[in-house]
Amino acid sequence: MRRAAIVGTGAIATSHAEALRAAGDRIELVAVVDVDAERAAAFAEKWNVPRVHPRLAALLDEEQLDVVHVCTPPRSHVPLALECLAANVNVLVEKPPALSLSEIDTLIAAERNSTGRVATVFQHRFGPAAIRLRRLLSEGVLGRSFVAKSDTLWYRGDAYFDVPWRGTWESEGGGPTMGHGIHQFDLLLSVLGPWQEIRAVAARQARDVQTEDVSMALVTFADGTVASVVNSLLSPRETSQLRFDFERATVEVEHLYGYTDADWTVTAAPGHDDVVARWHAERSETVSGHGGQLAAFLDALDSGEAPPVTLADTRTTMEFIAALYASAFTGTVVKAGQIGPDSPFYATMEGIGAPWANAR
């Protein structure tokens, strides 16, 4: 049986503990770490975890582990992942996995010198419907891709930002683009493949934060698909939506934090009713979530393959975010591959600074 530990026992750690328990005898949660000793102890008691450690160094020194689940606030993700890689331990890190492209490249370099691997939690990639969509597209069932959209329209009031690390570039790395919409447009990217260029805007409309509270982007993909991406924390009717208009069908999903097949609809183009039949030939009640990704992670470890989502996959999504901010803050079109070490948006998503920064 494989052995796992969770670092950071805040709210998202519960999703990881549930996924580990659902994996049955494939993996065991043997230890947790948290800077808040009381919270760690309470979490360990709730989930029957035998040991609590005060810090990651002690955990890595005293436990034989296959994977560490990093569930801490964003600023600490890369330092903790680097510690795990130095100990040759695999890492499953929550989003956002890093605060910049520079940090992602630091992880990539460290991974080359380790037998451990880093995977990012982008759990919506692993719902049965998303897997089916990518397969049908690759098999040519859906035809060419033309138009798409990704909307993450959520609501976070002022009280949400009372947590000190929220709403800052230094600790969170960005606003809803970085920390909320990332799941939806990562799924979009996993379906449509390489993006080519971005035209974007970002604004701080209502929340007293450093980062944006809304962003919008028009994206052109390498295959010619055009897409819109909206990320908001100001939307009282909360929803997460994706729409793909292919040659032979429109495929849509609307949910909030996780979907089942019931949340997806497929509308055939005239003369292509067979596409709908193909879609409904497979049915699942499974909710997209951490359990699906953990199962795929363990499958990869068992087969000796790199666990999904790899750092290369992650870099594509993080480069998309950096390009969105760069386009929004400079008023220019940003192309894939344009943001290198000489760009101010390489070391920080804030880049040259948000246009509202001097208004605070």
Rank of each mutant, 00 (worst) to 15 (best):
T250C: 14
A295Y: 14
F320M: 09
I198E: 11
V230C: 14
Q205F: 08
N113H: 14
G292V: 09
V209I: 15
K149R: 15
A312K: 14
R132V: 06
I352K: 12
T115Y: 05
M318H: 11
L85E: 08
A81W: 01
R117I: 03
A200E: 12
V91E: 03
C84F: 00
A262C: 12
G127W: 08
N88W: 04
D105K: 01
T317Y: 00
N358R: 14
E247V: 04
S190L: 06
E83G: 05
K149S: 15
G8Q: 03
L56V: 12
F146D: 12
C84T: 02
S102A: 15
V78L: 01
A354P: 10
F345M: 08
F221E: 14
F122Y: 15
S343W: 02
S190F: 06
I6V: 02
L92D: 01
V251A: 08
V230L: 15
W264E: 05
D25F: 01
E62P: 02
T72Q: 02
A81H: 00
Q293Y: 10
W165G: 04
Q338H: 09
E103A: 11
A269M: 15
L233Q: 06
E139V: 03
T314P: 03
V191A: 09
V201F: 10
H290D: 06
V276Y: 10
A17Y: 04
V333R: 13
D151C: 11
V276A: 12
V35E: 13
N358H: 14
T348L: 03
D105L: 03
E282M: 10
N88L: 06
I198F: 10
S171P: 00
W47M: 05
T260M: 13
A31N: 00
Q196G: 04
E139G: 06
I131C: 11
T106H: 07
A109Q: 11
A86H: 13
A17I: 03
G331A: 07
P73K: 01
I352T: 15
Q338A: 13
S303N: 00
R39I: 02
V7H: 03
G258R: 13
S232D: 07
V201E: 14
A42D: 09
Q293C: 12
E350F: 00
L188G: 08
F221Y: 14
Q64N: 05
G116A: 09
E63S: 06
